[in-house]
């Protein structure tokens, strides 16, 4: 597993470096803006979703060589290869959350809170984590059942699907809590937790589905 995680890290590294530079520059701009909640939200979501999506996009770059086939000849199980991708995604998701957290903290420290309620910060993270996990849950099974050349298309479909699932879930929760006006803090925490649980459930389910597909896949 250690070797696989290192492999995934190197596969992501060059793309992550470019994205990191972009995020640092954008972060400076956003930090300089006074109490601009919209930009802070965009930046935080971009950080959380961007890092993890960038991760899966780069991970599949290795399909341009025989490396995918070569790895199957190494002393690792197919399930371990899939697990390494899912773990790598979680690691990059954490990195994105860290980035978003730092930017929000910096913005609050310099200009005060740009949000109306503190619970909004929690919901930004819920949205980021939810969309990221829903996206990757769709991407990996699609990617393993199709050919590597279609990965970019699969990624776009997965991202749209991930956002779609998140929006639909929020809509369902709004209906459930019957909230014509704004939800209470408790309702927001509860609905946020439900979204996180749903995304984690789909993430785990996606892992098992992907393992099942990969075990039958010929390379």
């Amino acid at each position: 597993m250690k070797g696989l995680l290192k492999n995934n890290f190197y596969g992501i590294l060059s793309g992550a470096k470019v994205f990191l530079i972009f995020m640092l520059l954008l972060g400076i701009c956003v930090t300089m803006m006074e109490k601009n909640s919209f930009m802070v939200i965009v930046y935080a979501l971009l950080g959380i979703i961007g890092f993890s999506i960038n991760g899966i996009a780069c991970l599949r770059n290795e399909s341009s060589s025989n490396w995918n086939k070569y790895k199957l000849t190494a002393p690792v199980k197919r399930a371990e290869i899939v697990r390494s991708y899912f773990l790598s995604h979680l690691i990059w998701l954490l990195a994105g959350m860290l980035f978003a957290g730092m930017e929000i903290t910096l913005s609050i420290l310099l200009h005060g809170s740009p949000f109306d309620r503190n619970i909004d910060v929690f919901y930004i993270f819920v949205a980021g984590i939810g969309i990221s996990l829903f996206t990757v849950s769709l991407f990996f099974p699609l990617s393993y059942s199709g050919s590597a050349e279609k990965n970019q298309v699969f990624l776009i479909i997965s991202l749209i699907g991930g956002i779609g699932i998140f929006v639909k879930l929020v809509d369902l929760l709004n209906t459930l809590f019957d909230s014509d006006s704004s939800m209470t803090t408790f309702q927001l925490i509860l609905s946020g937790s439900i979204i996180i649980i749903c995304s984690l459930f789909l993430f785990i389910l996606s892992y098992w589905v992907t393992v099942g597909i990969f075990k039958r896949k010929e390379v």
Binding site: G3, S64, S65, W67, Y70, P75
Partner: peptide, 26 residues
Amino acid sequence: VVYDGDNFPGYLTAGQLAKIMSGLYS
């Protein structure tokens, strides 16, 4: 195993490959 053509991803260096392989083969 040695395959014809590119066995390893082009973005790696031989040094990085060694680190990966040391994590794969005991």
